[in-house]
Computed example of a mutant assay.
Amino acid sequence: MNNRIKPESFAELLLANTPLIDVRAPIEFQQGSLPGAVNLPILNDQERALIGTTYKQQGQEAAVKLGYELISGAVKESRVQLWAESIQANPQTVIYCFRGGKRSQITQQWLREIGIERPIIEGGYKAVRGFLISELERYSQTHSFRVLTGATGSGKTRFLQELKNEIGLVDLEKLAHHRGSAFGSMGVPQPSQIDFENQLSLKLIRLDRDFPKDFKPLIEDESRLIGACHLPGAFFESLRSSSVIWIDEPLDKRVDNIFKDYIVDSAIGLAVASIPRCAEEVEILKSEALRLFDRYKNAVKAITRKLGGLRAQEILVDLLAAETQFLESGELFANRIWIEKLISWYYDPMYSGSLEKRQSHVLFKGSYEACLGFCRDEVTVSRP
Rank of each mutant, 00 (worst) to 15 (best):
R240P: 02
C278Q: 11
F215K: 03
S241H: 11
P349W: 09
D171R: 08
E8L: 12
A299D: 01
N257K: 05
R138L: 10
Q30I: 08
K297G: 15
A11R: 14
R112Q: 12
I133Y: 06
F374T: 01
A289G: 15
P119L: 06
Y68P: 01
R383Q: 12
R103M: 09
Q325C: 14
C97I: 04
Q359V: 04
T304Y: 08
N17W: 06
I263V: 15
T157Y: 13
K306C: 05
N198I: 00
I5P: 03
E166G: 00
S223M: 11
F326T: 03
I205K: 01
L34W: 08
K65T: 14
R295K: 12
N2E: 14
S72H: 10
Q313Y: 07
Q161Y: 11
I219S: 07
S243K: 13
K297N: 04
I219D: 06
K164Q: 15
F145N: 11
S223Y: 06
E77R: 09
E85V: 10
D377W: 01
P7A: 11
A334S: 09
V317D: 12
A228K: 08
K203H: 09
S329V: 12
L132E: 05
F98C: 05
K216R: 15
R291S: 13
Q30A: 15
V282C: 02
E113Y: 06
L372Y: 07
V38M: 07
S201H: 01
L148I: 12
P384F: 08
